[in-house]
Design a binder for these strands. Structure first.
Length: 165
DNA sequence: TCTAATCTCATCAAAAGCATTTTGATGAGCCCATTAGA
C-alpha cells in the first residue's frame, strides 16, 4: 500500500477565508490563543491556521513591500504589540524518554516521514501530528549543523594537539 | 495556475540546573524559498 507523503490540500470556503483575512488585517502575527480561536471558528486545526498565516504573510510582504529590507513588522499599521500576540506562544511540549526514543528510532529509519507516518507516530506517542512535524524539522536542522561543525572541530582539535607537542 | 504544504536556516525562549546548554516554537524565504495537489 502506498503511503501518503503530503497532507491533502485544505480548501477554505469563502466564508472561512473572510474570517481569516479579517483576522490577518487586524493582526498578521496572531498569538496561540487567537490561532486556536480561529481554528474553532473555521472548523480546522490550529496548525492549518498557522500555515495559512505564514503563507499569507509571505504573499503580503511580496505584494505590498517590493522594497528591500521592509517587511510587515516595520509597517506602522502593525505595531510591536501585534507581533506574536505579545509573545503568546504555544506551551513547550516536553517529551518523556520513551516518546523521544520512539521519535529517534523513527528518525533513524526515515528523517522525512510523510503525513501518514507522522500521524501514526503521533498516535503512538500521544502528541498532535503537528508537534511530530516540528520535532523532525528541528532534528534535521540540528543534525545538519552538527555535521557542518564536525570537520571544524576536528581540525581545531588537531591544531590543539600540535600546540601541545 | 493558485496556494496549501513542506523545506532549511536563524532566532527566540522555556526548562534544566545556576551561567550555560538543550531543544521546542516561530518566522522568513529577496535574480521576491520550493513542491505539488486540486
Amino acid at each position: 500500500m502506498a503511503t501518503k507523503c503530503r497532507r491533502s490540500r485544505t480548501k477554505f470556503t469563502e466564508e472561512q477565508l473572510k474570517i481569516l483575512i479579517d483576522a490577518f488585517n487586524k493582526k498578521p502575527y496572531p498569538g496561540y490563543a487567537i490561532k486556536q480561536r480561529l481554528a474553532l471558528e473555521v472548523n480546522t486545526e490550529e496548525s492549518r491556521i498557522q500555515i495559512w498565516f505564514q503563507n499569507r504573510r509571505a504573499r503580503h510582504n511580496f505584494l505590498k513591500r517590493p522594497e528591500k529590507n521592509l517587511d510587515l513588522r516595520q509597517d506602522r499599521a502593525y505595531p510591536e504589540e501585534n507581533i506574536q500576540g505579545v509573545r503568546d506562544r504555544r506551551c513547550r511540549t516536553s517529551y518523556t524518554s520513551s516518546q523521544l526514543q520512539t521519535l529517534m528510532n523513527a528518525f533513524m529509519e526515515n528523517p522525512y516521514p510523510g503525513v501518514d507516518s507522522r500521524e501514526q507516530l503521533a498516535e503512538d506517542i500521544g502528541v498532535p501530528e503537528s508537534r511530530v512535524q516540528i520535532w523532525f524539522q528541528n532534528r534535521r536542522s540540528r543534525l545538519h549543523i552538527q555535521k557542518k561543525r564536525e570537520p571544524e572541530e576536528a581540525s581545531a582539535q588537531r591544531q590543539n594537539q600540535g600546540q601541545d607537542l
